[in-house]
Amino acid sequence: MLSIEPSRRELNGAGDVSDIALEQQASQSVIVERTRVLARIALIDRVFYQVTRAAAVVVLIILGGVIVSLVHGSWPAMQAFGFGFLTSQAWNPVTENFGAAAAIYGTLVTSIIAMVIAVPVGLGVATFLTELCPHALRRPIGVAIELLAGIPSIIYGIWGLFVLAPFLQSHVQPALISAFGDIPFFSTLFAGPPYGIGMLTAGFILAIMVLPFIASISRDVFETVPPVLKEAAWGIGATTWEVMRYVVVPYTRVGVIGGMMLGLGRALGETMAVTFVIGNAHKISGSLLAPGTTISATIANEFTEAVGDLYTSALIELGLILFVITFFVLALARYMLMRIEQKSA
């Protein structure tokens, strides 16, 4: 609109000569000018709208691209092994016979160990932060936990390899083996020599890694409870525990479960924290102390060394399986968290 100014100044400059024809001509040029500017603005507007819309669509295309490329890449393996791939324990690069069972088993078991440890502790930390912690410490501890949630997983991995695994090997695992040696079910669960690295160690590292996620999401979810509800419970004499148990948890159940699923999604797909300490052994073993492997650890360890199309393709199919599993877990988690957000809004 600014560009209309010069023409008007010209008009004034013409001053006294104000003759009708000139004025008409001038106003016509103003109109022409104005429509041109408006057209340009409208064009910019449209272009900007289309560009942002295209960018939003690109996000969808990325996800579609990931799925398509993984399916395409794993096609040779799918044709060679069919559904047997999911149940076969074989993993032999020499004879080119591959199966995903051991890796899927390891992924699930390490994630379950992680959740068994991290969920109670994470909920405890969240409860501590919302109900018990002295007010002065609430923010610093909360911020510290959020910062720790952002630390790269390779840090947890290197710590697990050099500090945790040797410690477990020399102190914890021998004790576990001798303590449970005579109890039927547990004797297989904790059987074998203490390697240090293995499923249990990997699960434990994962637990430490997802703990900050679960703690900080649960804390956020707990804080969506309207204070009036809690105050009402306190008003009729409920204890802190009763307020948590009968007011906060029922109110936030969906969100808490969503937070746990989000943590589970992280644990399932985590690569570096696990690869260091899992031991990379393609077998299903009853003992938690035995080395195993997970989907992501297998890919990380073997992908660059994979020779032959079928080997590469089998690894990509592993990636596809992992993606499908985490996709559903994360989708469920997001759906649940969305519901609690709507509730609090």
């Binding site: 996000v59 969808l60 996800l63 691209g65 797909g269 890919i299 990509i316 985490t326 994360l330």
Partner: peptide, 28 residues
């Protein structure tokens, strides 16, 4: 509708396993 779908997909990409992204870039 597009926004709702993109928001949902984006949240999933946010926590998708990064190794899968590596596989994707490898293949393309």
């Amino acid at each position: 509708k597009l926004t709702m779908i993109v928001r949902f997909i984006n949240d999933i990409l946010l926590s998708a396993p990064s190794i899968v992204i590596g596989l994707f870039v490898y293949t393309v």
